[in-house]
Design a binder for these strands. Structure first.
Lengths: 353, 353
DNA sequence: TTAAATAGCTGGAACGTTCCAACTATTTTG
DNA sequence: CAAAATAGTTGGAACGTTCCAGCTATTTAA
């Protein structure tokens, strides 16, 4: 083994930190000049820039963002991004795209999750503030109030909501076209001849649930189809919940021939449960999801679902946040991410045609 | 709507930042005292602590971590955690548990992903250093070298590897008992009477692949079973890859009756493809995975798999990192996370018995 | 030819903490 | 009762940057 091992090398006691000043001395300029080089200032000649850059390399200098941020009046290279779960598939997509976009723009995202708990959200937003982030992207936990959001803004931290929004608040938000999505999905099922259609999953204390349910109801009402209360099963959203919800709803009415799921993950649960119950998805039961996770085209049968591009959330959220970081007084925008129904096999062949 | 809206409130121009000094003046003590209160120092009387705390509340003071960190010699309340993907299920579990553990200990994790690319890893670790993290937890990207790890250590940043480790390096690492895991899984299949068993998925440039493959080969060799080269399909790991790999391997030998998958995600792909091909998993084909994601007990059939507790990775990684932050010269530990075979339905009923 | 403008660089003050040595009461010890 | 120890508090010097106003040559304008 050619490499030197850590325990053979007791000199990691950091001989001394190399600072801007050290680089300056080494190169023979002032620290101000070195600082200007780091900031890509145009008022430094190419030759000195060259020399300083080399000096930085030779001394092994590493920039100290903490010191920099202390002096700077506004910090626009650090933002907080809080989702509702670090291990939920759709959030994962968001995080992934946020990181990509942020890195492209030279801004560093501090990721965290509120785990759908307001207390944790409060705690972590406090930490964001202590780190003096330039702004916050937030998927608000249940029980987040408009006045709380207001408090954050007034403390000087621009904030944009994603995926969900606090009811009756008017703060910047980027949400999917939830209502249109479930409407399209439900309409599609109705056109296939289904009449007894259930709506499975979601939490009643979160805005997107109501929007998606509304889209479903729109289509059902327009078609004059009845929706008995037990057809609606708002029992959170997880694979497990999907399995339970399907069982519950079929228990109530075994004639149900189609289900609209709050999310793809719910739908995966429905797929599993169907298989267990010996129900053939596609022919016996039509299933549609919401989100269009990468996996959804790889299930069998492939899942019909409403696509919401996670990358759109990510890039628009960062765009919008940066906008508010520059213009904190600007009018709050509410952006709608378009959706599109991806028809695959899980909704089956036409029944009436 | 009772709340005041942001755009009605043009006074968000931050009247002025409240500092330690302001709090001190407000309470009538020195800034040093306020600082001591913030650090929970025992050398401040209960009555003044009380007063200061109230003062902090009244002035709306928010702690400035950047300023604090600038003065502190060592920062042990901020660490970097880099996984190989923000949107891969197992990494999601790790992130989730890391956040939980970190928050309990009052340390803030900066999450990021190297996307399995060394260049991105280098870039982000540089940023970690610029933020003066106290240490780094890293799932190393392919092509990470021992000398690179050494460089990080020597710059004063303790680092522990998780899930994988750089070959021929001897730096702290926490890895699953990969070899024992696939050995147990393969042995189980052999005992069920299977003889033609394939190994699907994984990347040859990452350590865990070789360990898992070795465990598989151990069991096969011990049983005297042949493993033609095409039985081994190292084509990354994803649901898509799982589908492809199964097709490829059955194409080569349709007599294969069992597959050991590099990961659960691979196995999900195998499950989907089997269904598409009309192969009954459990009776026609035995499938085992690796990881035991939460979903794996909810698939149909439920997936037999090797369980590796993500929470163990998370808490042990943070433990170990904190240890090295305190004792940078300590001998590097290599911790093995135990695994256990979870027998469910996807490996089917005994064949020979 | 002189005044004004500019390009390039500079030293010092500031940012908001923590650390340190020192200071004052108060309590304990011999 | 004096000396020593202790509990509680304090001001000032760091930490490593950025910002600002100013400085010196050089170039441009009049």
């Amino acid at each position: 083994m050619s490499s030197v091992n850590a325990w053979n090398v007791p000199n990691m006691i950091e001989p001394k930190r190399v600072t801007l000043h050290d680089v300056a001395k080494h190169v023979g300029v002032s620290k101000s000049t070195v600082s200007l080089v780091l900031q890509n200032s145009s008022s430094v000649s190419d030759t000195t820039r060259e020399r300083v850059l080399r000096g930085i390399d030779e001394t092994g200098y590493v920039y100290n963002r903490k010191a920099a941020a202390l002096r700077q009046t506004t910090s626009n290279d650090l933002i907080g991004v809080m989702v509702n779960g670090l291990n939920t598939p759709y959030s994962g997509e968001i995080l992934n795209h946020c990181e990509k976009v942020a890195l492209q723009r030279g801004i560093v995202p501090m990721f965290s999750s509120n785990a759908d708990q307001f207390a944790q959200q409060e705690n972590l937003v406090q930490i964001y503030m202590e780190y003096k982030v330039g702004g916050i992207i937030l998927c608000p936990a249940p029980q987040t109030s408009a006045s709380w959001l207001d408090k954050i803004w007034r403390s000087g931290f621009p904030l944009v909501q994603i995926m969900r929004e606090v009811p009756f608040s008017q703060f910047p938000a980027i949400v999917a076209d939830n209502r249109a999505g479930t409407y399209a999905a439900t309409l599609h099922l109705i056109q296939l001849g289904h009449q007894k259609i259930a709506f499975l999953g979601g939490r009643e204390d979160i805005s997107d649930y109501h929007e998606r349910l509304a889209g479903f109801m729109d289509a059902m009402n327009e078609a004059g189809l009845r929706v008995p209360t037990p057809y609606i099963q708002p029992i959170a959203q997880s694979r497990q919940a999907g399995r339970q919800a399907l069982k519950a709803v079929l228990d109530y009415d075994s004639g149900i021939s189609a289900v609209v799921c709050f999310s793809d993950v719910m739908a995966y649960g429905v797929l599993s449960e169907s298989r267990e119950l010996g129900i053939k998805v596609g022919s016996d039961l039509a299933v549609v999801g919401f989100d269009d996770l990468a996996d959804s085209r790889l299930t069998y049968p492939a899942l019909t679902t409403v696509q919401v591009e996670a990358s759109a959330f990510a890039s628009q959220a960062i765009d919008l946040l940066q906008f508010y970081m520059k213009n904190p007084q600007a009018k709050p925008e509410r952006l709608i991410v378009p959706v599109s129904l991806m028809v695959r096999e899980s909704c089956g062949a036409p029944k009436t045609l």
